[in-house]
Amino acid sequence: MPRALITGITGQDGRYLAEFLLSQDYEVFGLVRGQHNPKRAVLEQELPDVQLLTGDLADLSSLITALHTALPHEVYNLGAISYVAYSFVNARHTSEITGLGVLNVLEAIRLAAGPGRPEIRFYQASSSEMFGKAQCVPQDERTPFWPRSPYGVAKAYGHHLTVNYREAYGLHASSGILFNHESPRRGHEFVTRKITAAVARIALGLQDTLTLGNLDARRDWGYAGDYVEAMWLMLQAEEPDDYVIATGETHSVREFLDAAFARIGVTDWSPRVRTDPALLRPAEVDLLIGDASRAHERLGWYPRVGFTELVERMVDADLALATVEADRLATPAGTPARPVGAAR
């Protein structure tokens, strides 16, 4: 039975990847930071077959211990400080985890190698944020990096390290340059989930308005469940390489709002959406769109969930959560929640 170790397993991608690997008959280990991590109980309930290990990307010794315990054939490094806005507030912490954390994982793998031990194949979660002020459109594996945030800089450092360890030590180490990928499991701090959660609450009369920053920023948005399969395919390839994973379509935040509000029957969302300059990034990434031709040709990977379906899935999931909240808050007890499309 193949064994895999996933860092960042409590995040959106980690949970989807763990589900996928279990469906492929893997023995799955997940690295969790801190014994009292609040996400641990949720993960144990959701994925009871995953074996959880305590570790920290900032602590090399804990990573070495995790490798000795799991003896994995594959390591997926999904752990990071992944919220771009936070990286401007705490650039050092972001750099230590998102950047130097990659070095620690690679060093642990290099030190774990030896006679009688299985080859460890390594996946690094790189990011389209490395392109930042993109030098060409669309972006592919040959596009120069110009990161526009401490997060993007840290990801670029980890990406280059992965290439270096592949070339210097012969590691089967691949990087997935993933463009934005979303799902109902996305954190509420990200703009997509902020939108769909607010739209659901507005539909049920639990919220009046939504405040956002730049509505004109454009992103290549895909479905996280599709993207984790690309990660796995990279480690099944005979030779390691770097791959852009994207849909090849770009949409603005305004278009995301259009699709989300349309799901609840609202065509003019302008009275419900406000903008706040305080939510703008110090340096914006205006246009990201990926060319995943290499992944199509070499891995046979293609996205299955389109933009509108993705947004609708997220809104529907948040409507279910908001309905529970509305029913709980209803007065008197038993009063039904407002129908979809209703607002205060």
Score class of each variant (00 low, 15 high):
Gly34Gln: 04
Arg272Gln: 02
Leu288Trp: 10
Pro144Val: 13
Ala198Ser: 01
Val273Pro: 00
Tyr83Lys: 08
Glu27Phe: 04
Gln207Glu: 11
His73Tyr: 14
Gly79Thr: 06
Thr247Cys: 03
Met234Glu: 05
Arg193Ser: 09
Gln236Glu: 12
Glu284Asn: 03
Arg274Thr: 13
Lys39Leu: 03
Leu67Tyr: 12
Ile109Thr: 02
Gly99Trp: 06
Lys133Ala: 15
Ala125Arg: 08
Thr331His: 08
Ser183His: 03
Thr308Phe: 09
Pro72Thr: 14
Glu284Lys: 02
Arg254Ala: 01
Phe307Lys: 05
Leu319Thr: 09
Pro271Ile: 01
Ala198Trp: 00
Arg15Asp: 06
Leu57Ala: 04
Ala322Gly: 02
Val273Ile: 06
Tyr86Ser: 10
Gly55Val: 14
Ser183Cys: 03
Asp318Pro: 05
Glu312Arg: 05
Phe29Ile: 12
Phe261Pro: 00
Met130Gly: 09
Thr267Pro: 00
Thr211Lys: 05
Arg121Trp: 04
Leu288Ile: 14
Thr196Cys: 05
Glu309Leu: 13
Lys194Met: 10
Asp216Arg: 14
Gly205Trp: 02
Tyr83Glu: 05
Val163Asn: 14
Gly152Gln: 06
Leu178Tyr: 09
Gly300His: 14
Val102Leu: 06
Phe145Glu: 09
Ala113Ile: 02
Thr250Tyr: 10
Arg15Leu: 12
Ala168Gln: 12
Leu178Glu: 13
Val244Asn: 07
Gly30Met: 03
Thr65Ile: 01
Arg201Trp: 08
Ile81Thr: 10
Leu100Glu: 12
Gly341Ser: 07
Ala322Asn: 02
Leu280His: 11
Leu287Ser: 08
Pro147Thr: 05
Phe256Leu: 09
Gly187Met: 13
Asp291Tyr: 11
Ala217Tyr: 05
Leu161His: 07
Phe122His: 09
Glu119Asp: 04
Ala134Phe: 09
Gly222Glu: 07
Asp241Lys: 08
Gly265Trp: 01
Thr275Ala: 04
Asp208Val: 02
